[in-house]
Amino acid sequence: MQKRDLSLHGGGSREMGTLEVDKSLKAAFKETLEPHGFKKVKGRYPHFVRMATPEIIQVINYRLEQALSPQLEEKRFEVYCAVGSIYRPEINLNRSVYASMDWINTTHLEMYVKAKRNGIPVYENEQPGVDYIIKKGDEASLREQIAFAMTGIEHYIIPAFDKVVDLKTCVDYLELYGFDELEISRKTECNGDVFILPAKYPDVESYSAKVQNDLQEAKRRVMQRVSEKKMTEKEGKERLLRCEGRYNDDIKQYENFFSDEITKNEIERLKAERAEKNLNAIRTMGIEV
């Protein structure tokens, strides 16, 4: 990775205020992300956005806080990211990172673990963290932690984002990194990004096959936990019954959403409303669509 000049004004070991650290973070994120097509939104919040397509938004941001042990460390920051379609319930980039964590909540570490589990290349000697700790009064620590975070972005987030080129690959991404966004609920307002499921599963049969594969994998994991004595046989059977019930319910809900003509028409109407609302919100924050 190209070495960055993250030096701060002045020298020596001294207190670094929140504004000074935040300024350094914004500069580093801008330097790293702009070559990949990201732009910081208007206003104070550190959301960096790229429209992968006119239908797909990608966000990377950070959250800066006081360290948990202020007598030992001064500041800590966390890096989050998300991919979503303009058909999700809401895209609001005019709020804090903390307030946006209903959907912008995947961390470097989660991406590393899931990549490793799914056979995606990982950098064993550069396992990213969740919190990046800046030692009190230590500018070298600030530079080190920012560089470490930028490496995580370039090694895990950007490659995963680059694979999202249409709604089908958006579903691929969410299945791997943001499964909760694809959980089907009876209440349409609670269905994160399920409206894009037909891009990958065009009918009930294809979705049922996918759900059955998920169920078999869930059974395998439960049986493994039982064999390792991490779960009793009774607990395993109860877990499997719950899984089977939930998966069967998912299939019924999918059929209701995307096969029933009246419901399909209602969903198309909702999609159009969400797209208009979200695109206007994105443009308001200075992002071209």
Rank of each mutant, 00 (worst) to 15 (best):
D250Q: 15
T263P: 01
S206L: 04
D249E: 15
M231R: 04
M223R: 04
D203C: 10
V204F: 01
L240H: 05
I262C: 07
E261N: 09
E238R: 11
R246P: 00
K219H: 12
E255K: 08
R274W: 11
Y207V: 10
C243M: 08
E261S: 13
Y201T: 11
K210R: 13
N265G: 13
K237C: 05
E244D: 13
R246G: 03
N248R: 10
K229N: 13
E268D: 13
Q253L: 15
D249G: 08
Q216R: 12
L270Y: 10
F257C: 13
E228F: 04
E268I: 01
D260W: 00
Q253D: 14
K234N: 11
R225F: 07
E233Y: 09
K229R: 12
F258E: 03
Q212T: 14
M231Q: 11
R225Y: 09
A209D: 15
Q224W: 03
M223W: 01
K234R: 12
K264M: 09
K229L: 12
E235H: 04
Q253T: 07
D249R: 10
M223L: 13
L270W: 05
A275M: 13
L240N: 03
L270T: 08
R225H: 11
E233S: 11
Y207I: 13
K237H: 05
T232S: 15
N248K: 12
A209P: 00
F257K: 06
V222N: 03
I267R: 05
K219R: 14
V226G: 02
